[in-house]
Design a protein around this nucleic acid. Structure first.
Length: 292
DNA sequence: TAGTCGTGGGG
DNA sequence: TCCCCAAGACT
């Protein structure tokens, strides 16, 4: 079974969200920035950060010229701050080795820090209009349901997933819009929880035709957040983002009093990740403080 | 391959 | 309240 491209595209024209990075005037770099920010992060939280970001640093070289500490501050509480460091590194590589132009081919894109199988293809497709499959969690879910009649996608397998989606793509200039529409359908209608099948534009869906069978996949264990090292890291970084001068160990210690071993482990991991650095006098700061 | 890595909103 | 989830990458 294939996907009803005509129905999908008509629905997309009608219902698509008016997201700023979809404006045709937006540069490949700014699309790349949006893709980094959107990794595992809802659109509504990315919007304000992205708007400020591209106004402040519109090009890779402008981003590279900023210090990584300022980049981490601009990232704010978007989450997964290692993405901000990788975005900064990505800007440096593009500025230094690619003439300040985002590469257009998937192979080269895959060499960039923080660019994996999804992001490389999203840039090639949405920024450069290339015929390449773009497979994110939304696309995998839509295909699992509409094509295979399954409630949930199997565990990701990039090569296999991309081959399968490639076979569904239209062989014309509508490919980028088709991929954007598949993702949009997964985000707005064919959602993970409480899908809105009553308003689905697809003329055929294997899952619907099978009577919406429940999923059989074993429930993937959801990772807790409260009490984890990630929460401790978040609190430590919060202190460092709010201070333009290095802070003492004591100023960091107060954010996590219940488990000192865990607190030490979290701080050490931030140092290892290159998000935090220690000054010669033993205080702590965001990495790259004073640069840029 | 499975675990790690933030954060906050909604059911 | 608690739990699930949101345009993944990396090890």
């Amino acid at each position: 079974m294939s996907i009803d491209a005509a129905g999908l595209l008509a629905w997309y024209e009608r219902e698509r969200r008016d997201l700023p990075w979809r404006d045709p005037a937006v540069s490949a770099w700014q699309i790349l920035v949006s893709e980094f920010m959107l990794q595992q992060t809802p659109v509504v939280r990315v919007l304000p950060i992205w708007l400020d970001w591209v106004a402040r640093w519109p090009t890779p070289s402008a981003t590279a010229a900023a210090g990584s500490a300022e980049v981490l501050r601009a990232w704010g509480k978007l989450g997964y701050p290692r993405r901000a460091m990788r975005l900064h590194q990505c800007a440096e590589v593009i500025a230094e080795h690619h003439g300040d132009v985002v590469p257009a081919d998937v192979e080269t894109l895959l060499t960039l820090p923080g660019v994996g199988s999804y992001t490389a293809r999203a840039i090639a497709c949405f920024a450069y209009g290339q015929w390449v499959p773009v497979v994110d969690t939304n696309v995998r879910r839509v295909v699992a349901r509409a094509v295979h009649g399954l409630a949930d996608a199997a565990s990701p397998s990039p090569k296999r997933d991309e081959e399968e989606v490639a076979a569904l793509l239209p062989n014309d200039a509508s490919t980028p819009m088709f991929s954007a529409a598949l993702m949009e359908l997964g985000a707005l209608v064919c959602t993970a929880r409480a899908p809105r099948c009553g308003v689905c534009p697809l003329s055929s869906c294997a899952w619907r035709e099978a009577g919406y069978p429940a999923g059989t996949a074993k429930p993937k264990r959801v990772q807790k957040y409260a009490g984890t090292d990630r929460q401790v890291r978040g609190r430590l970084l919060d202190v460092l983002r709010d201070s333009t001068s290095p802070v003492t160990r004591a100023q960091l210690d107060v954010v996590w009093l219940s488990d000192t071993a865990q607190r030490d482990r979290a701080l050490d991991s931030l140092l290892v990740d290159g998000l935090v650095e220690q000054t010669r006098d033993g205080r702590f700061a965001l990495c790259g403080e004073g640069e840029g």
